[in-house]
Design a protein around this nucleic acid. Structure first.
Length: 705
DNA sequence: GAGCACTGC
């Protein structure tokens, strides 16, 4: 072994202790540090505490450490902290492990899908909220936790909302278990009846905690904004405390009049800042890729018209669909003397923090998903941002020093904005949520105590869908085994059902690949300027039968490529040639890798369930019949004018231009998505025979004919 | 013949 030079070693040691010194200093100066004692007292006194902490208060990193030091992890109990995003869970855990001077995965760890850095000795555990929900399926009383902290609750993701409903019930059940009460996890009559039934069956995860004593569960809801009252009311008037943040001041500017064209207004403001303001980068919030690309083009057209000395402006952009290598470009500092202008979607609002921002331009709009349960259709519409979004955006200018935010609308318009964004649970398909709640033992979904209840129509539509898929019985109970199997799979219920059917159709291998790829962002990447090139590259994967088989072709081609190369070279090299292969074939390597992870995870699940992992080989007819049997709810037939009519809701739709069947126009197709953008489109299609539908889903099509 | 904010299991 090569020996480490002595000097180098002690140098490292100095660096290490300097770093520790710095960490101790930083911890001391956080706004939350002086209130440690008071906070711990409040947690002891109240079972639920709402903490409103502004950005930079240190709440996410410090509160778990305070509680650990105060003895909340005695007897091996765990403090769990949930985050809406994976990156946050991972990075915060790393930071806290460092602050504690421990190795990550020991006392401090994290757990997110596909990546678990915890051990038996983990006491402070950061995780995604979705993961804790999954844990609850296996351990409904979340028995190892003494405290659960729900962070970023104001973002109101579906997972956060469902989790809060669940935690409220768990807390009730655990406290009544100690006081010798009923200890039933959900307090309604139907639930009790269901519990009696369920407890007769072996393998049910819902047990009355009669034989076991659970210590009470402490709940902390952490939120960044003004929504504390809603949380407090939901938890029976829970105490709320406020913690100062540490932000630099940001001056807000409004326009005098409403702007008719916010893209043009953004452009003018960018140049105004560039020519009149001091150094510092500019962050512009736009709604989507299309807007970003057009503003980028406009800037680069105008730039040469400026005097030579004013041309040092560098445009970079970031949005989710952009390959990661290109995303990274926004983090690189601009060349000396240059000002950077970053064109971003709301990925820059919360998900990524870009250093160096001094100016924010906020046109005040956002692209939002909405869902129409009646039509089963999703749409993406551009709507005004909420007040809390506007605050979040302007805050991005005050991370490193005083900043300025230019809102491209009059101040009176700001006052008219909604306080906060509508919670996601009120604008999405609820099938997955309902399946999970059913699996947790919630019988009466319409009566469930949601913090904000989705519409009755949306709940009923999803119950109906689950019933049609065979996940629910006539009595609206989870069916055995199909419903239980579906609930175990971390997939859209429609895809879970497809896997179960595929094992009967002997094409589970093909379906596994298909649902993995359907579960991720599109794997095809086609930048506008290289459209033709991209089309030629992906042509060799196309199947005349449709998009599903095309996806399988890509997956198998990438597998073959990887297998061959991984025999020849080491991992790092393989990774490099894999990325090159993806680039040459205009495939988004991040999406494909994600699909590969999902494939591996789901394969593990279906094997555990004992499903028959078989392949139909070249018999794609069999596979297409299985697709028809799985997605019969999403079928459409061609009309004389070349448009399509969906069989379930009778809507007129078109084939999305990204589909391999765009030109072919087969008589009858099944599809996976129905979205409204400029038109109503169906995406991810396969050609099927209409007669298969009546043959394979007679209960549904007999009903409709 | 035209396009898709962001998360998460």
């Amino acid at each position: 072994m090569p020996s480490v030079p002595r000097g180098n070693f002690s140098n490292r040691q100095t660096q290490f202790s300097e770093r520790r010194q710095k960490i101790i200093q930083q911890r001391k100066s956080l706004p939350i540090t002086p209130v440690e004692k008071r906070l711990v007292e409040e947690v002891r006194k109240h079972d639920v505490l709402i903490i409103v902490g502004e950005t930079g208060s240190g709440k996410t990193t410090q509160i778990p450490q305070f509680l650990f030091d105060a003895g909340f992890c005695r007897d091996g109990r765990v403090i769990g902290i949930t985050q809406p995003r994976r990156v946050a869970a991972v990075t915060v855990a790393k930071r806290v492990a460092e602050e504690c001077g421990v190795e990550l995965g020991q006392k401090v760890g994290y757990s997110v899908r596909f990546d678990d850095a915890t051990s038996g000795s983990t006491r402070i555990k950061y995780m995604t909220d979705g993961l804790l929900l999954r844990e609850a399926l296996l351990d409904p009383y979340l028995s190892k936790y003494s405290v659960i902290i729900v962070d970023e609750a104001h973002e109101r993701t579906v997972h956060t909302d469902v989790l809060m409903g669940l935690l409220k019930n768990v807390q009730l059940a655990r406290s009544s278990s100690v006081s010798g009460g009923q200890g039933l996890i959900f307090g309604n009559k139907n639930m009790n009846k269901l519990l009696e039934k369920e407890n007769d069956q072996s393998g049910s995860f819902l047990k009355k905690p009669h034989h076991e004593k659970y210590a009470p569960l402490k709940l902390i809801i952490m939120s960044a904004s003004l929504d504390a009252r809603a949380f407090s009311e939901y938890f029976g008037g829970a105490k709320a405390v406020h913690i100062q943040g540490r932000q630099f001041p940001v001056d807000i500017f409004y326009t005098r009049d409403a702007e008719t064209d916010y893209l043009d207004a953004s452009l003018i403001t960018i140049f105004q800042i560039h020519l009149e303001e001091g150094p510092g980068d500019i962050l512009v919030f736009l709604t989507g890729q299309e807007e970003i690309e057009s503003v980028e083009r406009l800037i680069n057209e105008k730039l040469p018209q400026l005097p030579q000395e004013n041309q040092k402006l560098l445009v970079v952009s970031i949005f989710a669909a952009l390959p990661s290598e290109q995303q990274m470009r926004v983090f690189a500092p601009a060349p000396s003397g240059f000002r950077k202008v970053i064109l971003a979607t709301n990925i820059a609002e919360t998900s990524v923090t870009i250093p160096g921002i001094k100016y924010v331009i906020d046109p005040g709009f956002v692209k939002a998903r909405s869902y129409d349960p009646g039509k089963g259709m999703e749409s993406l519409i551009i709507i005004p941002a909420s007040k809390s979004q506007a605050l979040q955006r302007s805050g991005r200018a005050g991370r490193e020093g005083p900043g300025k935010c230019f809102r491209l609308y009059p101040e009176r318009e700001f006052e008219k904005l909604e306080d906060s964004t509508m919670p996601e649970i009120k604008r999405c398909n609820l099938s997955n949520v309902i399946l999970q709640l059913k699996a947790l033992g919630v019988d009466d979904i319409l009566g469930f105590d949601f913090i904000e209840k989705p519409s009755r129509a949306a709940i009923i539509k999803s119950l109906e869908q689950l019933f049609l898929l065979g996940a629910l019985t006539d009595e609206c109970q989870l069916s055995d085994p199909v419903g239980h199997q579906m609930a175990r799979l971390p997939l859209d219920p429609l895809y879970s059902k497809a896997l179960i059917l595929a094992s009967q159709f002997n094409c589970l291998e093909e379906m596994l690949i298909t649902v993995a790829l359907l579960s991720v962002e599109s794997i095809f990447y086609s930048p506008r300027d290289k459209l033709e090139e991209a089309r030629t590259a992906t042509k060799c994967f196309s199947s005349p039968e449709g998009d599903h088989i095309t996806l399988i072709n890509v997956y198998r081609a990438s597998n073959d490529f990887l297998e061959k190369r991984s025999m020849e070279m080491n991992t790092a090299k393989t990774e490099k040639v894999y990325r090159k292969w993806c680039k040459e074939n205009f495939i988004n390597s991040r999406s494909l890798r994600h699909a590969r992870d999902i494939h591996r995870q789901i394969q593990g699940h279906v094997e555990q369930m004992g499903l028959n992992l078989s392949s139909c080989g070249d018999d794609m007819l069999q596979f297409r019949r299985c697709l028809a049997a799985s997605f019969f709810l999403n079928a459409a037939v061609k009309q004389p004018d070349g448009t399509y009519r969906t069989l379930a809701s009778g809507q007129v739709v078109q084939i999305h231009p990204s589909s391999v069947l765009f030109r072919q126009k087969p008589e009858c197709v099944i599809f996976n998505e129905l979205v409204q953008t400029n038109n109503k489109y169906v995406r991810n299609l396969t050609r099927v025979d209409y007669l298969w539908l009546t043959e394979l889903a007679p209960q549904y099509y007999a009903m409709h004919n």
